[in-house]
Amino acid sequence: MKALHIEALTKVYDGGVHALRGIDLSVEEGNFFALLGPNGAGKSTAIGIIASLVNKTSGHVSVCGHDLDTAKEAAKANIGLVPQEFNFSVFESVESIVMNVAGYNGLPRRLAKQRTEHYLKQLSLWDKRKAAARDLSGGMKRRLMIARALVHEPKLLILDEPTAGVDIEIRRTMWEFLTHINKEQGTSIILTTHYLEEAESLCRDVAIIDQGTIVEQGTVSELLSRSMMETFVLDTQQPVAATSIGPYSVRTREDGKIEIDVSQGTALNDVFNELTTHGITVSSLRNKENRLEAFFLRLVNSQRESAAANGQAAHNALGAAQ
């Protein structure tokens, strides 16, 4: 069964802004799915529609086989949402916030108490259960929203940039926790994030959305195999000021190391020969981990360039017609 199925989903805001232009998306049950895109691409609008926070203009959304138009309550019962912005009463205690959401989802009080204790302990918030939400740190607030989203044990958990603004240690802990509930509880997870290494290391499938359209969709490995370039980070014994060495483009990083783009299939011996010819000695080399980020940036830039070219062509055609 599909955890989420979206067909021809469009959203036009009152001001005429087309946030979504007929997107189709499917997420299999048990999947860990990343929805990536630059700011304003339509990610949060799509999530808002799935979670019933935004009214769609047209299209269909179904969650775990329940259509959001015809079986709204059944669809909603299967969703847990961790939004981008904090959206709880800052005056309420941590425990009350989670207990209330358990109640909204129809959990009897005893079960609600058990689940609240379970998830607050799992997310290291049990000691803070009596604290008002306003007194929590940023990382704790994020974890509170995760506990709140999980208290009714939804089949589909949607996280909109859950690790934004949290330190590396908490981010790693959250990754481990999300991986655990995905693998152990079988919860399907949809994640939007700006940290592409997060998507690369956590998610099985990825969709990239730009200007309201899905521009790429597939498994992380598929998308990476479509990337024609690989980037290596080199520690050189001499400073390198050039922007290209032979056929390879080069960038100098803030830490003095250089990044070199190499087409897939190129023998590294050829690269080293070129570097040696230019008098550059390499002390160490590693593949840049964030391959998805490189692919994402190339894809989005090429989309923008082609949109700009189409716009210019239309402008020229209009000029010729006049």
């Binding site: 959206n87 009463s89 909204y104």
Partner: peptide
């Protein structure tokens, strides 16, 4: 404070 969203997201009529 946007916590009305807790109710809108939940299966409450």
């Amino acid at each position: 404070q946007h916590y009305i969203e807790e109710l809108v997201v939940a299966p409450v009529s």
